[in-house]
Design a protein around this nucleic acid. Structure first.
Lengths: 157, 157
DNA sequence: TGGTCTGGTCGATCTCGTCCACCCGTCGAG
DNA sequence: CTCGACGGGTGGACGAGATCGACCAGACCA
C-alpha cells in the first residue's frame, strides 16, 4: 500500500470504470503492473467491489428514511442482524454506541412501503422500539474522500 | 426506462465494471445498443457515476461517526450546506425532518481527528448544537437493492 | 403511401485486457 | 563473494472488447 496504490484507489473511487491503461498513464506504470496492483488490492480486501451510483429518485426510490433501533435487554444481536439483512430495502446498517444501537438507512418507493417496513422491523424479536426520521433531501452521499497519507502500516501489505 | 434498462442498472449496481459485451450477453442485445442505453442512462441522470468500494479500515479510516446538527433559528441553510460540503471527511449529508435537521456520516483516521471535526462543524454559523454517535461497526453499507418494478413512469424517459 | 424517428444489428477498426517471457535490484545462505 | 530466489517492473503478442458508421425494421403520423 504505497503511494501509487493510494493514487490508484483514489482514482477508482472517483471513477470505478477507469481502464487499466488509463490508470497506468496516470501513475506512470504499464497496464499489466497496474492490473497486478489492483488485483492485489482486491485480494487484500482494500477494494471490495465496484458499483454504479444511481439517483434513487429516478429509479422509483423516492423516499429515504433513517431508522434507529432500541433493543430490549434480551436481544440476540446475531439474530437481529440476520433479520435486518434479509430486508433488501435496508441499504445500510450501522451498529452504534448509544441507546439506539442500530441505525438503518432505508429507501422505498412510497410512504405505504415505509410504513410496512417499520412494522416489519418492529416485529423482529429483540427490537423494543424504533424511531424513524424522514430525510427531506440527500445533500450528498458516499463522497469518496482521498485516502489519508499513511504514516503507519495498516496491516495490509 | 424499460425492463432491459432496469436489468442493466441492477447489474451495474452490483458490479460497476461489467463490460458492455457482458451486459449485452445478459440482456440479449448487442454491445453497441447496450452502450447506447447506458450512455442515455448517464445523460438522463439515472446513473450518476461509478465508484470502487473500499474497506475504510484498510485505508486508514478506522473511525466512523454519525453527527446530528441542531440549527439555531437564524440558520442560513445554504451557507451551512456549503460549509459542510467543504469538509472532505463528511462522506454523506442528509437534510432531515426533525429537530436535528442534518445528519452527517463522517470517517476519520483517529479519535483526535473526530474531535477536531466536531469543533469544526460546531463552529459553523447557524449550528446551535451537535450530537455525535460513534459507530462500533458497519454491518453493511450501500447495498444495492433491486430497482422496484416500475408501475409509473418516473419522469425520466 | 411515404417520411421520419427510435432503437436495433452488422462489420471494420482501434484500443484494451491479459498472458508470458524476460529483466533488474534486494536479500539471505552457503 | 557469489549464487539463487523473489518481488515488482517492462515489452510484445494475441484475443476480446469498445466504438463508430452504415444500414435496417417497426411505429407513428400526416
Amino acid at each position: 500500500m504505497d503511494e501509487i496504490d493510494q493514487t490508484i484507489v483514489n482514482l477508482l473511487r472517483t471513477d470505478g470504470r477507469t481502464s487499466y491503461a488509463e490508470l497506468a498513464r496516470r501513475v506512470g506504470l504499464t497496464a499489466p503492473s497496474v492490473q497486478d496492483r489492483v488485483s492485489k488490492l482486491e485480494k487484500n480486501g482494500v477494494i471490495t467491489g465496484y458499483q454504479a451510483v444511481v439517483d434513487p429518485e429516478t429509479v422509483g426510490l423516492g423516499i429515504t428514511a433513517l431508522i434507529g433501533i432500541i433493543p430490549d435487554n434480551s436481544a440476540d444481536h446475531l439474530e437481529i442482524c440476520d433479520k435486518l439483512r434479509a430486508i433488501p430495502q435496508i441499504e445500510s446498517c450501522y451498529f452504534l454506541a448509544g441507546v439506539e444501537c442500530y441505525q438503518l438507512k432505508v429507501r422505498v418507493p412510497k410512504m405505504a412501503d415505509l410504513e410496512k417496513l417499520i412494522h416489519q422491523v418492529s416485529a423482529i424479536p429483540g427490537v423494543a422500539q424504533t424511531r424513524t426520521t424522514i430525510t427531506l433531501s440527500t445533500k450528498w452521499e458516499d463522497r469518496p474522500q482521498p485516502v489519508p497519507p499513511t504514516e503507519l502500516d495498516y496491516g495490509v501489505d
